[in-house]
Nucleic acid binder design. Structure first.
Lengths: 197, 197
DNA sequence: ATAAACATACAGGCGGCATGCATGCAAGAA
DNA sequence: TTCTTGCATGCATGCCGCCTGTATGTTTAT
């Protein structure tokens, strides 16, 4: 059987304008928020017209979704890379935690993923986007730590969700000018203590 | 000296339409979100015209602010009441925690205060609104518990912020159908653990 | 009469869609 | 091989309905 029946004419150009739109949208969404950014602004910054935007994306939300997706993938990659280096579950969890907080210091990520994201896409969708990836490392680490300490009846699933929220808030606090070391220490305290019977 | 130089003609009627607008807006904001709700819809539901809305509120955001404010006050009252009954700091904190989670089960509060609020008003303003009130009980409890257990060098301020975030997420999870008992247990675990040296 | 409380009318802008044009790819004919 | 025909993709332009905020007019209470 032949693959690529229709080889997509002009794929490069298409990808280029898509990327330009996503990049321009990202900058404006970060600067002025989703609601405060108009599609004319976006296409002007990208050097195209609104026709191109609505050719590539179903609507303004879909464009935001693409931006958020890109950001979430970058964060997940950072965690994956940092966690994979340390094989013991406990160390991997710690490394992943620090990696998450540092990945979220990239300007705009907190606004995109934690502030505008839930309101625009709904909390559920942005959870599937961000948490599902980032929380995996956390859960594995918690399960390992719980098994080690012999605490078997912990509500691990719930703890993962709540600790994820604490992570998010720590990222926001750090970007708002909070002392990173202080919040990292507080997160360590919470994680370590979460698995104590 | 005379007070009330201008006696505010028709204060009752004014308050009534204000209340009607806030109530109608609350219902629609909860049902369709802030962005998905138009001012024509709101005034139609309230039985007035847009003129009345813009007479009482500077803009649509100000109306949302009034709604969120009302909600935050109700939550704070619930916590205050529950916490005041138990005078020992530890008990007060526990009672306040449960009170918070139950107050947030009132339909729409999570969306208003935790999802749309930060995006519409900014994370900072909604923090001053909600957290400042709710977090006070939490901080006093943590300080008392830390003093009791002899752990003096805990980053209490940071822990309060992070635990508040966990509370918020617990409220969201519970409204989304999560098991309340499980999340309450997980929160207890986190709080108890936060003060362990 | 005077000022508040509201209603009405208007202006600017935005989001989404439909239409139109241009460019490239594929395949058959010469 | 080259040319040309057919067609889908990529994108620009114009339009429509709606919404927000304001300015102006009208009623009502004091």
């Amino acid at each position: 059987m032949q693959e690529r029946l229709r080889p997509r004419p002009n794929r490069e150009r298409s990808d280029a304008t898509r990327a330009a739109l996503v990049a321009a949208a990202r900058a404006l969404f970060v600067e002025k928020g989703y609601a405060g950014t108009s599609t004319p602004e976006i296409v002007a910054a990208a050097g195209v017209t609104r026709g191109a935007l609505y050719h590539h994306f179903e609507d303004k939300r879909a464009l935001f979704r693409a931006v958020a997706n890109q950001e979430a993938i970058a964060v997940a990659d950072a965690i994956e890379t940092a966690a994979a280096a340390d094989s013991p579950a406990g160390d991997a969890m710690l490394a992943g935690s620090v990696a998450y907080l540092e990945a979220m210091t990239v300007p705009g990520r907190t606004r995109l993923l934690l502030t505008d994201g839930p309101a625009v896409l709904g909390a559920a969708e942005v959870s599937d986007l961000d948490d599902a990836n980032a929380a995996r490392t956390l859960r594995e680490g918690l399960e390992a730590a719980a098994a080690e300490s012999g605490a078997s009846d912990l509500p691990i699933q719930a703890l993962v969700v709540l600790l994820s929220a604490a992570f998010d808030r720590a990222a926001i606090a750090i970007e708002a000018g909070g002392n990173p070391a202080e919040f990292k220490a507080a997160m360590q305290q919470l994680i370590r203590a979460a698995t104590i019977a």
